[in-house]
Design a protein around this nucleic acid. Sequence first.
DNA 1: CTGTTAGCGCATTCAT
DNA 2: ATGAATGCGCTAACAG
Lengths: 387, 387
Amino acid sequence: MKIKRQPTVSDVARLAGVGTTTVSRVINGGERVSPETFAAVTRAIGELDFVPNMAARVLKGEQSKTIGLIVPSIADPFFANCAEVVQTIARSYGCLVAVCVTGNEASLELENIDSLCRRVDGILIAPSNSSSKSLNARLSSLSIPVVYFDQPLSGTHISGVMTNNYESSRAITNHLLQHGYERILCIGGEADFYTMRERIRGYTGAMKAAKKALSVDTAPHIRSKEETAEVLIRHLAGRRPPQAIYCLKNTTTIHTYDILQQLGVRVPQQVALAGHDDFLLASSLRPSVTVVRQPVEEIGRTAARLLFERLSRLPEKVAAKPGVGTKTVHLESHLVIRASCGCREAEPAESIPSFRLRNVGPPSTRSRRGTGAAVRGSATTDKGKAH
Amino acid sequence: MKIKRQPTVSDVARLAGVGTTTVSRVINGGERVSPETFAAVTRAIGELDFVPNMAARVLKGEQSKTIGLIVPSIADPFFANCAEVVQTIARSYGCLVAVCVTGNEASLELENIDSLCRRVDGILIAPSNSSSKSLNARLSSLSIPVVYFDQPLSGTHISGVMTNNYESSRAITNHLLQHGYERILCIGGEADFYTMRERIRGYTGAMKAAKKALSVDTAPHIRSKEETAEVLIRHLAGRRPPQAIYCLKNTTTIHTYDILQQLGVRVPQQVALAGHDDFLLASSLRPSVTVVRQPVEEIGRTAARLLFERLSRLPEKVAAKPGVGTKTVHLESHLVIRASCGCREAEPAESIPSFRLRNVGPPSTRSRRGTGAAVRGSATTDKGKAH
DNA sequence: CTGTTAGCGCATTCAT
DNA sequence: ATGAATGCGCTAACAG
């Protein structure tokens, strides 16, 4: 089998009996080309299965038609969903998405930026450490547009999208307070993350306003389930155990839920539970888990839009001019009130006809009345993805 | 602020007082360069913050240092985890990963291949339709190596990695049979996927061997929770309702679990449940869910290894020679026996010290004895990712 | 409307 | 051990 070299513009030009410029023009929309020539060239392109060489285009100063996406982890559902949306939007612009994961390591972050900056048209980043000086410096000096999301980038004139962690954290804490809980434990989360600090601030704000004693435990870094268990047990076994637990993030909530199960602690009767960040199955657990939900898809979409907006209105290479058209979009998270906070189990998302198994005893009857409480959120969709 | 053009080899050469060739040599390892010159050039590179232009390299026929990853969905935990591993390995080779999602649409798949083939060194793909002629044709004609995973590519001489869906499906069906269930319902899954067909075949094989009546229901496509509910209710309300349910995939299992909860059907007392593909929280639910678990990380790792193996031993452009060094790696899934199948709740993964809440009644005592049954699997790690 | 020409930044002969 | 020259495929002047 002979190695078939990829056809080039010259090949097409020769076959079509025209010059390379004409071919180039056809490729790029066919301005100033006669219909006949256009047709001829198009035919030649089809015959040769010609695909323009991106590398050459990039070399000519064109766009690479690729954007970079830097995230701590692509396995994290939050970022995975963001990535999916970003990818979809990017494709609508004919762009590829190069995904880089950093594992929250600053060095990897910088390394990724370096390897991306010369090969992509723009960068979307969820910074691990938003206050890192070197990160900000590196990003600011880039000649391509950068958009951050999830965690802010301080001190630079870069666009981004954020959710209001402070507000939503305050709201969920208030919700717990309204249930009458006085001792609310706040756990989990790397406290050196901006978002985490904001959430803690929200919790603190609500507690102070209600004149309740604070009880934050983020020491040192609650990462593993074991660490979470240790912290939980320490508090639960104390003289004045918490009446409610507010978990600062996803995994902590899940771990906490699991541990409480194993400990035989009834939720919410003995201890109420609420968490930041929704998760798949949060609505399927019994009790279902009350959470703050971030508008994941919207975050990804907005960030991508912000980037392509800047990308498209670059007259030439005026792109990098900092501070021009820069903005931060704030998106709203909202409460998804379910059962773990003490509210009654909400009405099932879809109504299932009443039903009775034939050959077994009558199933336990479930209350189907909706809660009259201040339910500001709706039930999760828990949209599953096919595999 | 002046637009600082990115420095080039010539800039470095001038500053270092050498020729561009020397700079190039230094960049590529520094063969045949005197130590002094090497040092000088290195210093110049550092001063200018020089980063070689990938596009130019690619244009010169070098590798693009980018690989393509084509998956149905990156939001799907299975593919997200694969992607994470792939990305990590790719970086160890200095490669970027361009992720493309197809949403299981054949046209998008082809489109993605076209847009990738000229810009990447190799492609990793989880085909949506493994028997598509046009897909196979397009992939075969590519001049870059291709590795498939999850779903096989038939008729081409392309490497790939698969798990044995047939065997694992048979094993889990047998496990249910050993519990004494005779009427086992098999639901969910797009039956036109190779993996799904294999799983159904495994179920069928086990049932036939046990001389039990088949009960497969995949019609038409069980996608939404509503459809799943409809199918479930139809069977449960029948004269001879199933004693166990085997779900062919992730989302179906989750939906089924949820629906059974809502129906008030007790699992496993009234109906046992088992599913293909593990999921986060499967071990945290009560009852925990028995599943077949695929070695996700290993799949991703193996696929990536396969690709880079071919990539590295390309003397020049002999890469595409089909059938050379081609192989399919088979990985084993295994059963993770939990409670929903009827086995007793397994011992908690980590032992938590016995514990008693101070100001409330004694928690229900949980049996902590392990099951003596044929537990071939271990408890999930449910490794959470930071966010 | 169309063709000719000159680089984009780099690796690479082939000289020295 | 080093450098000058060449071309990868494409697009953007600049003629015609």
